[in-house]
Computed example of a mutant assay.
Amino acid sequence: MPTYNLYCDESCHLENDNMPYMLLGYVCVPYNQMRQHNERIKQLKEQHHFYGEIKWSKVSNSQHRFYNDLIDYFFATDLFFRAIVIKKEKINNSNFNQDYNTFYYKMYYQLLNHKLDTLSHYNIYLDIKDTLSTGKINHLRSILHTKFGVIRNLQNIHSNESVFLQITDLIMGAIGYHLRGNKRVLAKTNLINRIQKHSQHQIDRSTPKNEDKLNLFFIELQ
Rank of each mutant, 00 (worst) to 15 (best):
E39N: 12
E39T: 15
E39L: 09
E39F: 08
E39S: 08
E39V: 14
R40Y: 15
R40S: 08
R40D: 08
R40W: 10
R40L: 09
R40T: 15
R40Q: 13
R40A: 08
I41K: 00
I41T: 05
I41C: 04
K42Y: 13
K42G: 15
K42E: 15
K42P: 06
Q43A: 10
Q43V: 05
Q43H: 11
Q43N: 12
L44S: 04
L44K: 06
L44Q: 01
L44H: 03
L44G: 02
L44N: 03
K45E: 12
K45Q: 14
K45F: 01
K45R: 14
K45Y: 02
K45S: 07
E46R: 14
E46Y: 09
E46V: 04
E46N: 14
E46I: 06
Q47N: 09
Q47Y: 10
Q47K: 11
Q47W: 07
Q47R: 08
H48L: 02
H48S: 05
H49W: 05
H49V: 09
H49Y: 08
H49Q: 14
H49C: 09
F50Y: 12
F50S: 01
F50D: 02
F50H: 05
F50M: 02
F50C: 00
F50A: 03
F50I: 00
F50G: 00
Y51N: 15
Y51T: 15
Y51I: 09
Y51E: 15
Y51K: 04
Y51W: 12
Y51G: 12
Y51L: 09
G52C: 01
G52N: 08
G52S: 07
G52K: 05
G52A: 04
G52Q: 06
G52E: 10
E53L: 03
E53D: 07
I54G: 00
I54M: 02
I54T: 08
I54F: 01
K55F: 00
K55W: 02
K55C: 01
K55L: 02
W56S: 05
W56G: 00
W56F: 13
W56D: 02
W56P: 00
W56Q: 04
S57V: 13
S57D: 12
S57Q: 12
S57A: 09
S57M: 06
S57T: 15
S57L: 07
S57N: 11
K58P: 07
K58M: 07
K58I: 06
K58T: 11
V59S: 02
V59L: 00
V59N: 03
S60G: 09
S60M: 02
S60A: 09
S60H: 11
S60Q: 08
S60D: 14
N61T: 04
N61H: 05
N61F: 04
S62D: 13
S62G: 03
S62H: 13
S62P: 06
Q63D: 07
Q63T: 13
Q63E: 12
Q63M: 08
H64T: 13
H64W: 09
H64L: 12
H64A: 10
R65E: 10
R65L: 13
R65G: 01
R65C: 08
R65N: 11
R65F: 12
F66P: 01
F66T: 05
F66E: 02
F66Y: 10
F66V: 05
Y67P: 06
Y67D: 05
Y67E: 06
Y67M: 06
Y67Q: 07
N68Q: 14
N68D: 14
N68T: 11
N68W: 11
N68A: 13
